[in-house]
Simulated scan of single mutants.
Amino acid sequence: MEAQLRPGAREAIFAQLIDAGRSEQVARRLTDAIILGVLTPGERLPSEQELARRFGVALITVREGLVLLRDAGLVETRRGREGGSFVIQTDAPHSALLQARLRGLAQVELSDLAVYFSTIIEGCAERAALRASPVDSERLRAWLADSAGGGTAGARATAGGFYLELAVLSQSPRLVREHIRLQAEFGPLLLLALGDAGIRSRVARVNGEIAEAIAGADGPAARALVAGQVQDLAVWLLTAKARIERGGQLYDPA
């Protein structure tokens, strides 16, 4: 059974861009939504007119962004009454893109992004523990259960979607917007760590513990668990960057 994000999380993906007018931002927002599994294979994107309205950009900007996605092999555009732009791939083809992005960032920049990301999602988790209703908490547990499995691609989709769910449960529009912006910039890189089986196992376990902390209205515990998890992911990413810069592989064969 494929887990579906709650409507609030999907709406957040299509929130207006803060700095409108750049086709690269449209392409990155949609690319990272595909990598994170928010947009799934075979899914038809909203129409060009609807994307322009949601992102708050000109129609030509959306069209240029979709050209970038087609060139990257992420979507295909079909003509006719049942046509539109459809997601066609989700995981392996993006590894080279993400590794190139990883090489282009300095260690100090990666560390700073991790601190910023952790600070935002810690705040989301703590506020979610204070604001989530029992129904919200049960849905979060059920969503995690439905999302279990699926290997690396499934784990990335689950982790990225889980962070987005925490932002939505915070019930703070500003936190949601900032999280969306930051997750688009850094989330796919951070989640490269989920190609490591040990990291995947720890993330799955800690996500369950975070959900229980939220259900128990324990904000400090939810915050601490998120901080530890992001630190774990960031340490792996920094180690992997050092490894590939020495000519090694992204994933340690040992």
Rank of each mutant, 00 (worst) to 15 (best):
Q4M: 02
R6K: 01
P7H: 05
R10N: 05
A12F: 03
F14K: 07
F14Y: 10
A15Q: 04
D19F: 05
A20S: 09
R22N: 07
R22F: 09
S23K: 03
T31C: 08
D32P: 07
I34C: 01
G37R: 01
G37E: 03
E43V: 08
L45R: 06
S47R: 14
L51Q: 06
A52W: 01
A52R: 00
V57Q: 05
I60W: 14
G65I: 06
L66W: 09
V67W: 10
L68V: 10
L69T: 07
D71R: 13
G73F: 02
V75G: 01
E76H: 11
R78M: 07
R79I: 08
R79F: 09
G84F: 03
S95I: 12
L98C: 04
A100H: 13
G104W: 00
L105D: 12
L105V: 11
S111L: 12
V115I: 12
Y116S: 11
T119R: 15
I120Q: 10
I121C: 10
E122T: 14
R127H: 07
L130R: 15
R131K: 14
R131C: 13
R131L: 12
P134F: 14
S137P: 08
L140R: 06
A142G: 12
A142V: 09
A142I: 08
L144E: 09
A148P: 07
G149C: 08
G149P: 01
G151T: 03
F162L: 10
L164R: 15
L166I: 07
L166K: 12
S170T: 14
V176F: 01
I180Y: 06
G187C: 13
L190V: 12
G195C: 09
G195W: 01
I199A: 10
V203H: 14
R205K: 13
G208N: 10
E209Q: 15
A211G: 05
I214N: 08
I214F: 08
G216K: 15
P220W: 04
A222E: 05
A222W: 09
A224P: 04
A224T: 11
G228L: 02
Q229S: 14
V230I: 15
L233K: 06
L233N: 02
V235T: 11
V235A: 13
V235I: 11
W236M: 00
L237V: 09
A240G: 00
R246V: 07
G248D: 08
Q249I: 04
L250H: 05
D252R: 08
